[in-house]
């Protein structure tokens, strides 16, 4: 549990930045070299590499250097953890609203009878 929470902590920090979110979205489609990932951004390579390290530390992506090319790949397990939390929240709200549907129906039934 502790490990799970710690990893979520870094995960949310990692995803709090728009550049990093865009990189993850790109990598969901398939692996890509750092050079290609950095191309859309008006940013020095060292700055971009910092984003890559944050994503790697969060476990969202992995990278591997072959020759002079560093290729990044997406790690789906980590994002699944965050998605699970939001799914759980959605379930809570859905359950609460189902209760309210029930109550509203009951209340309207009472009004109709009088």
């Amino acid at each position: 549990m502790d490990n799970y929470n710690a990893s979520l902590d870094t995960l949310f920090h990692a995803l709090a930045d728009p550049t990093r979110r865009a990189v993850v979205q790109r990598l969901v489609k398939g692996p890509a070299p750092v050079k290609e990932l950095a191309a859309p951004y008006d940013m020095a390579l060292p700055s971009f590499m910092k984003h890559i390290s944050v994503l790697e530390e969060a476990g969202l992506i992995a990278s591997k250097k072959q020759g002079r090319v560093r290729t990044c790949t997406f790690n789906p397990d980590k994002l699944a953890a965050a998605e699970k939390w939001f799914d759980d929240q959605r379930t809570i709200w859905a359950s609460r609203f189902d209760n309210l549907d029930t109550l509203l129906t009951t209340l309207q039934g009472e009004t109709d009878e009088t």
């Binding site: 379930t91 809570i92 709200w93 359950s95 609460r96 609203f97 189902d98 209760n99 309210l100 549907d101 029930t102 109550l103 509203l104 129906t105 209340l107 309207q108």
Partner: peptide, 29 residues
């Protein structure tokens, strides 16, 4: 979170703003 309810606004408002009604639905199952 957006949700539509099959009831008039006054009734939905009451369900959110009266505790005897809140007690009947607020906590998720």
């Amino acid at each position: 979170v957006r949700r539509e309810f099959a009831a008039k606004r006054q009734l939905v408002w009451d369900c959110y703003t009266k505790c005897e009604l809140l007690d009947q639905w607020y906590a998720p199952k």
